[in-house]
Amino acid sequence: MLDKVIFFFFAGVAILSAGLMVTRRNAIHSAVFLITTLLATAGIFLQLRAEFIFIAQIILYVGGIMVLFVFVIMLVRLDVALHQIQFSRQKWVALLVTLALALEVGVMLWSSRKVPGQGFLLPNAVPAGKLPPNTEALAGRLFDAYLLPFEIASVLLLVAMVGAVVMAKKRT
């Protein structure tokens, strides 16, 4: 019961602020609503007892990426953006893509109904005590079963970082 209340609260906040994020004209307001969406998503992670992903979402997306977003937006002249067209009008493509997505989600929900022991919309959350410690479990998987992909990904990120520094240095 409580789980469902929390889920629907966060889901509602996430969807509502995602919609507001798209429709606001002021870029800072959009950023604020994006932050709200990300926080609400983090709340859903927490409700699913995925503590590590919850805090990773907050530290990386909200505390890292969004801070830089807002930092950049602050330096932009917002009144210029106000006079530009906000949406590109490609109604038919949008309709098609939306229909495809809706179909996909519908099929997913429909098939999840047939899985025994799970509700129609919400998988029943496992009681907190029965799960292995979240951080340890994740670390075990990452550094044991998926060590090579993990290392490759980190090298890739390092290359991207060095590349960004090199490109930024070139201009001066």
Partner: peptide, 19 residues
């Protein structure tokens, strides 16, 4: 489970107030 990360992660959100 992520106690200390929670503390430093959430307290770093205060930066949005400043910005």
């Amino acid at each position: 489970n992520v106690g200390l990360l929670f503390v430093i992660g959430v307290s770093s959100l205060g930066i949005f107030g400043i910005v």
